[in-house]
Design a protein around this nucleic acid. Sequence first.
RNA 1: GGCCCCAUCGUCUAGAGGCCUAGGACACCACCCUCUCAAGGUGGCGACACGGGUUCGAAUCCCGUUGGGGCUGCCA
Length: 503
Amino acid sequence: MTDTAPAPRARFAPSPTGYFHVGSARAALYNWLFVRRLGGTFILRIEDTDEARNRPEWTDGIISALDWLGMAPDEGPFFQSAAEGEHAAAIEALWDSGTLYACGCTREEIDERTKQRAAAGDPTPGYDGHCRDLGLPRGEGRALRFRTPDEGVVPVHDLVRGDVEFPQRALEDFICVKGNGKPLFVLANAVDDRTMAITHVIRGEDQLPTTPRQIMLWGALNAAEGRDLALPAYAHLPLLVNDRGKKLSKRRDPVAVEMYREQGYLPAAFRNYLALLGWSPGDEEIVPIDTIIQTFRLEDVQRSPAFFDIKKLSHINGVYIRALPVEEFVAAARPWVDPQPGEWAPGGWRDPDTGAPAVEPPPWPAERFDAGTFAAVAAVAQERVSVLGEVPELVDFLFLEDAPTDADSWQKAIAGDEVAPRILDDALAAYRTCPWDQDSLHEATLAIAEAVGRKLGKAQAPLRVAVMGRTRGLPLFDSLAVLGREETLRRLAAARSRLAPPD
RNA sequence: GGCCCCAUCGUCUAGAGGCCUAGGACACCACCCUCUCAAGGUGGCGACACGGGUUCGAAUCCCGUUGGGGCUGCCA
């Protein structure tokens, strides 16, 4: 450690208003990454003071999502609602120092005056300082505003953007305290950062315009409280956007981390992808978290917005899945294939609009699932999925009563193929006696193919559909070997009689 | 409207004045491998928004234009 700077304290301060947003997850990750290499502290602060929108289950969601991603906080969760005392004291100090004044203007009055000003040729929007020098006493229904300077600029030193300056004259006298005496976000946030000794504020770029207010508040608090706390360093991260370049929104875009988890993304893969949105480790993108921790620098963070690309996420997830030792893959896939997996199963997430789940539960009853059978095909399934939620469709033929049915596949490989009956018949005959292992089945089927003058790839299609239901899927002979002779013959015969009753 | 931010392949990015004929990854296309499908391999397509400067030299620095985005709540 040659670093002489004190260990940083960074906080992630989400508001529990819904499912955990991927943008929040990225912000949390960057806070966490920043702090890890420097031996600092990652703090979780739940900003739960919006009584109208906050619900306790969303708080649980934040905590378990962070946990799932391997980013459990070093300190916290702290709750903003528990800091009422500090907030009240700060308000008193600010009031006593004269930086705050009471204002009784309604939104309508303010808008009306703004309109009149605009008509008179003054484009300055927002509050006009109407009550600034009225000397109104505090009282129910009167908000408290911050008396902002009229001249000069507020400089924001941003670790990713450099220096940004906000002209004072564009900054209105903003409200710090609601008419009911409760602090507003801008104040509570600053006060909490002070009491928690936060050294770095790392958050989304959408917070940049509010930063000059917090800086002014910080200075006023220092003066009012007679303390000289150092302003935290700020870092505003580029926004995550959709394919139209708009900020990812809960309404239109799939943003719930819970949903991605239930679709079968691996936490390490998800985290790796998130790290790539706004930052790059170089030519190798899929890298261990330790490498990311060691090379991550806020100064290297991109300044332009990043598109959340599910295709790339899926690719990275596939790489992580394939890299798993097969036993770990079996364990990881369990919640998606076993109707009674134990601790955790997908299904908790529901689309807020449609009520649709992230994935369908496995279409077989718990008693038909067999862990050993699944393990027997796990290795070949593992190479064929990019998310765990795709596993059930690959192995369903093992746990369903009969072969799955797929109209297109049936039509293409059996009903629409005049050689299919003969292939089925030949297989029925050959499979009755051949040794039941992958190589023997391969050999026997090769012989059938040659007899009908087709390549193996073409000849196996009707058999695949008869037994496994679809034209695409796990390798046929591995699958038959695991399914067993008896059941294979049964399904072959069933397909044969469905095609045309034997004479 | 006001304030602020941003601008390299379709997407995520490398690039901190000469190493750039602009590199990698996803996606896409072709071929190879192959019992289907994947995976894998090889190759291909494909970008410095525009205009001025500064400089011997600019994707890199400055200015402007254009375009995009964010904020603009007694929400957080």
